[in-house]
Design a protein around this nucleic acid. Sequence first.
DNA 1: CGGATCGAC
DNA 2: CTATGTCGATCCG
Length: 861
Amino acid sequence: MDDMKKAGNSSCNDGVLLRMGLNDNKAGMQGLDKEKINKIIMEATKGSRFYENELKKDQQVNERIEKMMRLKEKITTQQLLKAQLQVDKLVIELEQSRNLSSTIVHIDMDAFYAAVEMRDNPELKEKPIAVGSMSMLSTSNYHARRFGVRAAMPGFIAKKLCPHLTIVPLNFEKYGKVSKEVREILTEYDPNFMPMGLDEAYLNITEHLEERLNWPEDKRRFFFNTESITEKNKDDRKTSAKFNEDACSPSPVLFEDSTPLMDDAPEQKHQSVGNLVVFGTSAEEVVKEIRFRIEQKTQLTASAGIAPNTMLAKMCSDRNKPNGQYRIAPERQAVLGFLKDLPIRKVPGIGKVTEKMLKALGIVTCSELYQQRALLSLLFSEASWHNFLDISLGLGSTRLDKDGERKSMSTERTFSEINTAEDQYSLCQELCRDLAQQLQKEGLKGKTVTLKLKNVNFEVKTRASTVLSSVSTEEEIFAVAKDLLGTEIDSVAPHPLRIRLMGVRVSGFLSEEEKKYQQKSIMSFLKSGEESSFLRLQPGKCNQTQKSEASPRGSFFDKKRAARQLKSENLAPNETVGKQLFDDRKSSANLVEKTKKVTDFQNSNVCKIFTCPVCFEEQSSNNLEELNRHIDECLNGTLVKDPVKLSKDHNARENTLNFLPQCENENVDECRKNKANQLAGADQSASTPDHSTSNNTEKFTQIIPDKPHRERQPSNLSDIARNMCMKQCLFPKRMSQDHEDHFEKTEHRKETSSSSEAKDDSVLVCPVCNSEQKTTSLESFNRHVDVCLNKGLIQELTEKKDFPAKTYNTESSHRVGGLSRGQQCTNPSQGTKRSGLTTSQSVSKKAKSSNSKHTIEMFFK
DNA sequence: CGGATCGAC
DNA sequence: CTATGTCGATCCG
């Protein structure tokens, strides 16, 4: 987010102060020099539990480095030469794939939160301020930075560095609004721009540049917005005038040392007359125009980078901040020139640890990174050194791929020590409640629950458990989380578990395809079964979950207080599961056992007796899987009466589940392998011969960030596989091979040629209604089949008229247009990084996961 | 799959 | 007193 994060660290050798960071102090300004800053930080830090843990982590990194160095010693010149050949082969390929045709822009608001706060409160303007709290700062203004006050620094230490520091609490709502205003501008230049948090964004202005050439001048003409300056801050706001006068001087209020950058090639230069500006048609002019408009609209300044790919653009925006911009021309030499002396730490994705490891190898700059490419290929994992190679060649993503579906959702909280099991369970439940709420907002259900704990010594642990049927409600999540927590409590018994943070995460979501076919109708059908004849719940027991949902919503700490008062009293019957625990505090194992029973009991009430909507036979079981299996079989047409037998009969199912489009009847694993190899492509095979040499040396892990610059495999195999898998699950017996082939083709066409809608209408027979369906796409056919299934089957049977409408969420979840995307992103931490896997790996991985999905569980989730 | 780690904002 | 929260990715066992 901020430009201050990486500044100044790289020259430091060792120690935890690395992360505290330093400033580049300007002579004469009030502020502190590096030494003083480090001294103050050290005094405030040393001896603390936090510091001890930092030392420990540092030691671990050192051990990693030592291990790496030992490996390095063993490498023979022979091996190195061989590696050099292999790597350089790849370099040639990469060089040929270099794509300089895109114009990517990275926009970065300057000291965003602090700037907003200063804008809205003029009293702060002359002062050093930081935004955050006494325990953690999010950002600081440039004035405060002179004192060493930086993002990610606790406020109390910042106060020691700068006693006059004003700490302003975070106000995300406000930042979100401002961010939206900025996005409204950005979307005009690239409707598919990619926001990264609230204060950054990437734009691909390639198209805009082309169109702009034909634009009349008045479309590039803007007015200085003098009217919006209120009486109150008129004196402070000289930016407009400044802008007019010397064409982009920094806003004096915020930055005294910023770099004016509105001076470029004269023929491109914008002209300004009176309160009018006209911007040119070059990339630089476009970006100036963007920055101008941002400042006019929000009174905030932004920095920007222009380059042929995202990695370079990001580094460019860092170059002249605050309130500046920089461009790398789309030429190989310009790129390499930029990188030559650039410290690797400036590269997005190279963090503190990687920097230190590389430094141990004598690598500090990007050109050194290139020089050592052979060595790196022997010391690091393939993904890592590929990434290093990309960096040192200046290769990066030339397009802004839409962020994929969310992979996980979590919530965590830091607090002062909590050490009683009672409080810990209660807190855990509260986290589960919060998480469940958010999950339901997005309609997500996941299979894996992860509990995160940080003890008072700042040691972090995570414990995960994945369950068969996906979870989304508070009760479901808590049922898993409390077991994990119980195990941890027991593991330190008889000592109390002393924690300062707890978090709960749900991951392993159903994919888009799975969700589409998850047959919500049957789900809601089951749920509303309380009023339906198909699902008879045992009398009087079915409201348990609702009751616990209706339990008090106060925060954990409120509840804790209340709970103490109630301690001697009997627990009210509508207490939550978590609270029932606290009756009995003999041992945590006991507690867990008890909750387990309660929840199991609840669960067991959900479907005691169930009439199958397909065969109308009553099924009595409290095992969802068995019921699923039964329904599945019914739909298959192979009606088997005895569900117990069915459960043994896995083989047939396995085959259908592992179905891959191209596989036909081959052995599935074999097929998968072939697929993977087929997709592996040249660079894979290029590196394989060397395996013998690199294999005996243990590779070091490394971080692979956002570098999917090699173009992705256009066809999305996994989606096809998943889709086929779904179809197989629903209609395995009636689906003819012809249909499968057709699906494959149509799906491929969809995937490979997104633009051309070449449609040879084909006729498919709906397996439900048996009518012929003319289809232009797989999707429309699927839709028909589903409608058929729901209408024809379920609706009729249940006499409920309103199911199908609910079932078909036709909303395509792929809307990405600027603002809608922006709104999704109000959360400052939308995922940003892409897979660092090579294409082949990523495809085969996805294919694998799509194969392992289990049956008609979907019906219930 | 689970756990630890890294990195970004 | 007082060292965040949320997410994605990788790697290893």
